[in-house]
Structure formats: C-alpha cells, structure tokens
Amino acid sequence: MRNILAIIERELRAYFISPVAYVVLTIFVFLSGLFFRSILAQVLQMGLMSQLQAQQLGPRAMDMPGMITRGFLSTMSVILLFVMPMLTMGLFSEEKKRGTIELLLTAPLTDLQVVLGKFFAGVTFFLILLLTTWIPTGFLYLYSSPASGPILTAYLGLLLYGLALIAIGLFISTLTENQIIAAVLSFGTIMVLWLVDVLANNADSTTGKAVLTYLSIISHLDDFMKGVLSTSHIIFYMSLMLVALFLTYRSIDSLRWRG
C-alpha cells in the first residue's frame, strides 16, 4: 500500500511540476464555466417562455436547477473526453522513454502495484477536476434549492465514466514511448466508443442496435443524469475499467518479455 502511495505521490508531483496540470486545470475550469453560463442562459430563457405559456395554459411545474445541473454535467462528459487523454498519455509512455520503467519493474513491487499506483494517480487528478465543477454547482445551491439526488447520481456517473476513460488511457500509454501518440490513440479509442451510439441509430437489426447502444460509452450516462441508479450501467463502466486495467497489466508483462 505504501508503495502504491509513493507512486501516486510521485506522479502527482510530476503533474504539477510540468505545465500539464495547470494547462489542463485552466482549460477545464474555463470551459466548464463557459458551458455553465450558456446552459444557464438557455434554461432561463426556457423558464421565461414557459411563464408566458403558463399565463394561457395554466401553471406547469419546471425543475430549473435540475435542468441546469443535468445540462451542465452532461457537458462535462464531453469535456472530459478531450481532457482525459492528456492526463493518461504520459503515465507509462514517459517511463518507457526515460528508462525509469526499469527502476519500477526491478523494485520490490508487483506489477499490479505499479499499475494501480499509476491508475490512482490519474484518478486523483481527475477527482481534482471534478471538484472544480462544484464552483458552478455551488452557486446553484446558493441561489436555489436543487434536488440533490440527481446531482449525486450524475456525479457518480461521471466518476465511473472517468475511471473507465483513465483505465483505457493507461492501457494505451503502455503501448508507446511517445506521449503524443498515446494521447491521440486514447482520444481516438474513446471517440469510437462514443460514436457507436450514432452507428446504433443506423443499425438494421434490433439486436445489432441493442449491442451497439450497449457498447456506447455515453448512452450509459443518461440514466445517471436523470437521477436513475441502475446496476447495469454501473456494471458497464466497472467492467470497461477492469478490462482496460487487466490489459494494462498484461501489457506490462509482455513489456518484460520483449525487453
């Protein structure tokens, strides 16, 4: 456990010594603020419209804070798609390039400890990113009283989604010595997992459609955003993460054989 913590700590230091952490944080906070603002404006306009309609058709219930958080946190999943590869690109590729992988793999550590250390380093940084989204969400709490349930499930969904993305990126960074290649490949892979949803809509057979929809990394987020907790979605993200972590572990093993 101490070994894993040491790896996490070193990796976090490396994030914050290099410009990567600051660039990623800045862009993430800026973009999330920007999106929050535009979603807020949209929802306010919708509210105004429905008020006008209410004068003619009678009052209708409208969960404005809920609409805002749902819109905002769904958008976060898109931003994360771009940001995550930047967090994971160097995790193993840099070690390979610098030769420090030889230190890690000859230290009295198991390969699993190395993989988990790297994974949780990425996860820790991701949690910091998620924390920053509490700035806009916090304002909602300050000026309105949103229902906390859907917000919590939405965050749980984002968390699971993020863990899966990190595991995928981690695996890909074991495949190359080049950070840029790792980032582009991770981005491409996640993008494909995103776009199967679009393919699903064009699928002919219903089974094909069901399979493709199930595979889509984004379709599983919808229920979380609506405040619905469903085991099948949790299992989807968890298994995606575990498969990617297992592949990472095997990739390190094969790295040893190939030298």
Partner: peptide
Amino acid sequence: YLPENPPLYLEM
C-alpha cells in the same frame, strides 16, 4: 540495480 541509462526522474 543501475541500468545502462540511469533511471532518473529528471524533474525531481
């Protein structure tokens, strides 16, 4: 073990 290229984290 000292590998041929010392395994150093240069930023530390």
